[in-house]
């Protein structure tokens, strides 16, 4: 420590001393068991705590690198949107919250879109960043999802969406609510183009996000232990005035109640998605029907 650390404001300090690559916390605590894990071990294990199997949050860019062949991500450019249409402030200005979130994540908003290949099948994938204002769905996120879908339609590839969100971005009021129908229009575009839409629900996915695109996948996958629901657990507790059942709104609970197709460990996610996009993808080259199952020259009834 020298005098400059104490006197110079953090912003200036970062100019004088370039940010170190190594994060300050080398040890990460498992939120479930309290077990301490060395950050490199965690990274090597795809941010799944080795002993407890707890699936930790994973940065969106890392998510795409893990997903795509050779970690090759082609980032898709996203359109800009009005930043604070309501001129909203609560205890803090919305513009300041945005500024903080941008600084924290080095991202313009809560959704990242990239193209790549999964086990050679080309796909477009979008990832919500919970670290950006709770992954909340505002105009930017809505526009990003629409852009991602349009890219998938243009390239005729499946669209995979990793959700993580507390719900709508309240600071954008009604304009955030309008992202529910807007993203649903995007889902309709995929349906009409005959392209698979696969949703991977990660911890947590709630509110207006589940009540729109996050629950409309052709295939619904959830990561183990992910909290998934419409109303928040606290809101429900206040409504019914009793304690919630064990495991309520967790991925496994949703599987039991028929709300998702499967709960998939992160280590199996890439191969599962690879298989699904192969099975649902374009049939032309993959399964030549005539070769596999030769049809008679003319329908049987026509011979008579």
């Amino acid at each position: 420590m020298n005098w400059i650390n104490n006197v110079v404001r953090p912003k200036i300090r970062s100019l004088i001393y370039p940010k170190k690559e190594v994060p300050e916390n080398l040890w990460v605590k498992c939120p479930e068991t309290g077990e301490m894990v060395f950050h490199r071990d965690l990274e090597a294990n795809q941010w799944v705590v080795p002993n407890s199997g707890y699936h930790m949050r994973i940065a969106p860019d890392k998510r795409l690198e893990l997903l795509f062949d050779d970690g090759a991500v082609e980032t898709i450019a996203l359109p800009g949107v009005p930043q604070d249409p309501l001129k909203f402030r609560d205890e803090k200005r919305y513009t300041d919250r945005l500024k903080d979130a941008k600084a924290k994540t080095a991202r313009e908003d809560a959704v990242l879109v990239g193209a790549g290949r999964i086990e050679t099948t080309p796909v477009v994938a979008a990832v919500q960043d919970f670290d950006f204002m709770g992954g909340s769905l505002g105009m930017a996120a809505g526009e990003a999802i629409i852009t991602g879908v349009e890219a998938a339609v243009a390239r005729a590839t499946p669209f995979i969406l990793f959700t993580a969100s507390g719900g709508a971005r309240m600071q954008e009021g009604i304009l955030s609510l309008m992202q529910m129908p807007r993203t649903t229009v995007a889902v309709e575009m995929l349906r009409e183009a005959g392209l698979p839409y696969i949703v991977v629900l990660t911890n947590p996915t709630m509110g207006g996000v589940t009540a729109s695109y996050a629950m409309l996948g052709d295939i619904q996958i959830a990561e183990p232990g992910a909290l998934i629901g419409f109303a928040g657990p606290r809101v429900i507790e206040q409504t019914i005035r009793e304690k919630l059942p064990e495991g309520f709104q967790r991925a496994e609970y949703l599987l039991d109640h028929g709300m998702v197709d499967m709960v998939v460990h992160r280590h199996q996610l890439r191969s599962t998605l690879g298989r699904l996009v192969r099975l649902l993808g374009p049939k032309t080259a993959a399964i030549p029907r005539e070769a596999a199952d030769p049809a008679p020259a003319a329908p049987a009834f026509a011979a008579e």
């Binding site: 629901g229 709104q249 109640h257």
Partner: peptide
């Protein structure tokens, strides 16, 4: 916002 609504897929 209730347990029954959630378990029958309110969001969906």
């Amino acid at each position: 916002p209730g347990v029954d609504a959630e378990e029958r897929g309110q969001a969906e």
